[in-house]
Every structure is written in structure tokens, then in C-alpha cells.
């Protein structure tokens, strides 16, 4: 079935223990991811947006079992990934890959681009002749927009954008179905960002890839994603079609994020209402009681600091996690 979700995350939790001293006494818990649920259909892109430290990378790493989840489920083609035995997991591992944020730290400085891709390619254990390997690696290089000669270069001889292309080629060498893109362009120049985004879109069309696209740049996400999750402090607070993100944001946090983007149109800039966020991002160690956003929320009422809001699924395609979002929208419409 084409429309079954290829990846489905249910109530995923990742809690890190904070320990101190030789005795490793537990002094607290970092709730980096605290009940995240979403699903992606085959060939689609889901965007995950949120401030730094809200648990985006940890979510990605938990799906890949790089950090162990404290609770929840991850399904890949309806198979429960997190409860698989290691041997079983090894079999499907290569189908989900990751592209990293830092193009410098994600390539071994001692390896040529060719050997970086080759090593990952041949790790599937299939029998190939040396010529076949070379041919496949070169195809991958061309596929990500590099020339075959680039294969001889070492990471320090490549630009940030070129390195990121090698990182993409390495992910493709596993023949993945899903790629988790962890802020793949945020370390790059704006002009190069567009090239990498276009490349990712081209690859998605050609190879039928599914992306989980993590970013903190809303414009980038709106461009590439079909569906967007807004994350705040380990929770998803709103989900919507990416077109609705700018036209119909419902959660106060989403509204604040949107209004923080500078607008070029002078008149619009003068008339529009800006929502300024006060205070620092609270740390996931001392999570606020009630709605995690309440210390910074301009609309917070007394109830917000006492009760935890649950996802309101009135519109199943646009769930929001806020007590008062309906009232807010009446206000703005007036």
C-alpha cells in the first residue's frame, strides 16, 4: 500500500540521566525528547522545526537507535524498530540513513572522498568486482553533482558544499528509503544552501526517497517539506501542511517563530503584529510545569502553569497543543 506511513513514531521519549562524581549519583533527568509522535508517507518530506536544544537531533538519533529511547515506538514499514534484536536491526539499518549538520566533522579527514563512499557501499557484504565498485562510486559522485576526479580529494581540499555532497553520496551508498537530514544546510552559505536543497529535491524525485528534514530555518522547511512539526522542549506543539505554516499558524509558539522572520515589504512590516518572545529557552532539565511554553507565552493564563495541554485533533491534519488557540485566532481575525 502506497499510502501507509513508511515511518511512524509513536510517543517517543529519550531521557538522559545526569550523573555526578565517581559514584555516578543521579542528580536529574534531561527529558530531551518527551513524547513525540508523527508519521511520514513514502516519498514525502516531513519537516521538524524548533530552537536549538529542543531535541531534534536526539529524535533522529533515537529513530536510528544511536541513542536508546526511554519509551515509545518507531515503526519502519510497520516493523517495530526499537524492539528488534540487534541482528534483525542490522538487516534494515541501511534503509534509514542520516545526513549530518557539520560538513567538517562528518567526514574522516584521513580518507579520500572515493574511499569514504566506497567503504559504506561495500559494507552491505555483496560480492562486487573492483571495477564494479569503482563504477558505482563514480555514479554516486556524479549523482550528487560532483565529477569523478573529485573522488581523489581529501575533505580538507573540499568546500563546505562539496563536503555535504559527499555526505549525501555516502548516505545514498546504502540505498536508503528514508534519509534523516539533520540541519543539512545550516552550516553552509546561503547561495550554497539553495544548491543542496535543490539536489535533495532532485534525488527525492529520482529515487523516491522519504525525508525527515530537521531545520531551524522556516523558509527552508516550507520550501522542501510537505508537512511540518513544530517542536518545543522535547514536544511537538503543532503539526500542519507546510503551506499553512505561514498562512494559518495556530500555536502561540509557531506564531512567534513566524513573526520573528523579517519581512521585506515595508507596509506589511509596519502594520503586522510582532510577537516577541521573552526569556531564554528553559532547559530540558528543569521543565516548566503545565504547558512547557507558558513562561514565554504572551497569552498564558493561570491554567497554563498548572495543567498540561494535550493535542487538539479537531482538525486531524492540523493538530495543536494549546488550551486557548481558538480564542487567539478569533482575536486576530477581528
Amino acid at each position: 500500500m502506497k499510502n501507509d506511513p513508511i515511518i511512524k513514531v509513536e510517543d517517543l521519549k529519550v531521557h538522559f540521566g545526569l550523573t555526578k562524581g565517581i559514584a555516578r549519583k543521579r542528580i536529574g533527568t534531561v527529558k530531551a525528547v518527551d513524547g513525540v509522535s508523527f508519521s511520514v508517507e513514502h516519498g514525502k518530506t516531513i519537516g521538524i522545526v524548533g530552537e536549538s536544544g529542543c531535541g531534534k537531533t536526539t529524535t533522529g538519533k533515537a529513530i536510528l537507535r544511536m541513542v536508546s529511547a526511554s519509551g515509545g515506538k518507531v515503526y519502519f514499514h510497520n516493523q517495530d524498530v526499537l524492539s528488534m534484536k540487534r541482528k534483525e536491526h542490522d538487516k534494515i539499518k541501511r534503509k534509514i540513513q542520516m545526513i549530518f549538520q557539520d560538513p567538517y566533522g562528518s567526514l574522516d579527514p584521513r580518507q579520500s572522498a572515493f574511499s569514504i563512499i566506497k567503504e559504506v557501499l561495500v559494507a552491505d557484504g555483496k560480492k562486487r568486482s573492483a571495477e564494479e565498485v569503482t563504477k558505482e562510486v563514480n555514479e554516486l559522485l556524479v549523482m550528487v553533482g560532483l565529477s569523478e576526479e573529485m573522488g581523489e580529494r581529501f575533505p580538507h581540499e573540499l568546500s563546505g558544499g562539496q563536503r555535504q555532497r559527499i555526505g549525501i553520496a555516502r548516505a545514498l551508498a546504502c540505498h536508503p528509503e528514508v534519509i534523516i537530514c539533520d540541519e543539512p544546510v545550516s552550516a553552509l552559505d546561503v547561495s550554497i544552501q539553495a544548491q543542496i536543497i535543490n539536489l535533495l529535491e532532485k534525488l527525492q524525485r529520482e529515487l523516491g526517497l522519504t525525508y525527515i528534514f530537521v531545520a531551524h530555518d522556516l523558509a527552508v522547511v516550507r520550501h522542501i517539506a510537505d508537512y511540518v512539526c513544530i517542536m518545543y522542549l522535547g514536544n511537538i506543539v503543532e503539526m500542519m501542511d507546510s503551506d499553512e505554516m505561514f498562512t494559518k499558524p495556530l500555536h502561540p509558539y509557531t506564531k512567534a517563530l513566524i513573526s520573528a522572520i523579517p519581512v521585506v515589504d515595508y507596509h506589511l512590516e509596519k502594520t503586522r503584529k510582532r510577537i516577541e518572545l521573552e526569556g531564554e529557552i528553559p532547559s530540558p532539565i528543569n521543565r516548566p510545569t503545565g504547558c512547557p511554553f507558558h513562561p514565554r507565552c504572551p497569552y498564558a493564563k493561570e491554567r497554563c502553569s498548572k495543567e498540561v495541554p494535550v493535542m487538539d485533533n479537531t482538525d486531524p491534519k492540523h493538530p495543536v497543543c494549546c488550551f486557548y488557540y481558538k480564542d487567539l485566532n478569533k482575536e486576530t481575525n477581528n
Binding site: L64, M66, D90, K93, R94, I96, Q97, M98, F100, D102, G105, S106, L107, D108, P109, R110, I116, E119, V120, A123, D124, G167, R170, A171, A173, C174
Partner: peptide, 26 residues
């Protein structure tokens, strides 16, 4: 912890190879 070792783990590269080819040389 580095991303390039993580990437190798995601790709199912053997631990012995990761140690001999990447950890020790680096």
C-alpha cells in the same frame, strides 16, 4: 562520538573495521 564514525555504524560497517581503519589511525 564523531559523525563520521556514527555514519559508519549506520551503514553496518563492522566494529573491528571502524577501530582499525578509523579510530586507531585518527
Amino acid at each position: 562520538q564523531s559523525d563520521y564514525i556514527t555514519a559508519l555504524k549506520f551503514a553496518n560497517v563492522k566494529t573491528s573495521k571502524i577501530i582499525v581503519r578509523h579510530l586507531l589511525p585518527n
